[in-house]
Design a protein around this nucleic acid. Structure first.
Lengths: 119, 119
DNA sequence: TCGGTTACCGAATCTTTTTTCGGTAATTGA
DNA sequence: TCAATTACCGAAAAAAGATTCGGTAACCGA
């Protein structure tokens, strides 16, 4: 059993936010849902950089955190829809600003130098 | 040599933002600098959840991305200061909103259930 | 019954990130 | 000379995160 050496700081809002939606694809998923891509298959098509598997997993985590809600119908073909909860909607201004900032930063640097920042 | 199968989407501002400051401690570091903790040793004391090593590393990455600037004096004791660049300052509204959101989410859930969200 | 669509999941593997540990260098004052 | 302070860095190990591959299940229509 692993005992973490450094304590988690759950007083810090940033730490909490990072825990809830600071994963590689979570902000993209939330953005996609807001833009109307509510079905898993739609998100898979929309978010090209990610494998379907990881999107499924992160969607499940967002559901566990109460950020999205899943509605499933039993018809054919299978139809599942994810929607933002109220809490989920309250993240969107943050995501939107991340997006704006990222685009501004790209403008500033040019795409080539962006690729060279190998973080 | 690893060849990634899925392309990176550098059109997406969110992806870029995540790349630049979406690491575990970068938002905390930027927040600390803004709150006046400019010296590495101060940040080490301030950000308790992180090891000094990882803070040093992420600070170096932020410097490489042009988000912070390093000023070093040669006196004794060694004195190093990191400050936000203009670009760095432009991230702060995003970070601030992450922090606000995280604190609000904590209120909503209570700290216990927060720990149980093992993401 | 078989192929196609949608929505998933498990397990192994690979990659990335973080941690741990143990250094170095500059400088001052005791 | 030696301890103490500050600011780092390298390398190995551990942990976390993402990817790949290959499944299952529900259901319809041909």
């Amino acid at each position: 059993m692993y005992q973490r050496k450094t304590p988690e700081d759950l007083e810090c809002g940033i730490t909490i936010a990072m825990k809830v939606f600071g994963a590689k694809w979570k902000p993209c998923l939330l953005d996609a849902i807001q833009r109307g891509f509510r079905r898993p298959s739609e998100m898979h098509r929309e978010i090209k950089g990610a494998t379907p598997r990881v999107l499924d997993m992160q969607l499940r985590e967002l559901e566990a955190s109460g950020i999205v809600e899943k509605c499933q119908s039993t018809g054919f073909p299978l139809y599942t829809e994810y929607t933002l909860t109220d809490v989920g909607r309250s993240i969107m201004p943050v995501i939107d600003r991340m997006n704006e900032w990222g685009l501004g930063y790209k403008e500033l640097l040019g795409e080539q130098s962006l690729q060279s920042i190998s973080l």
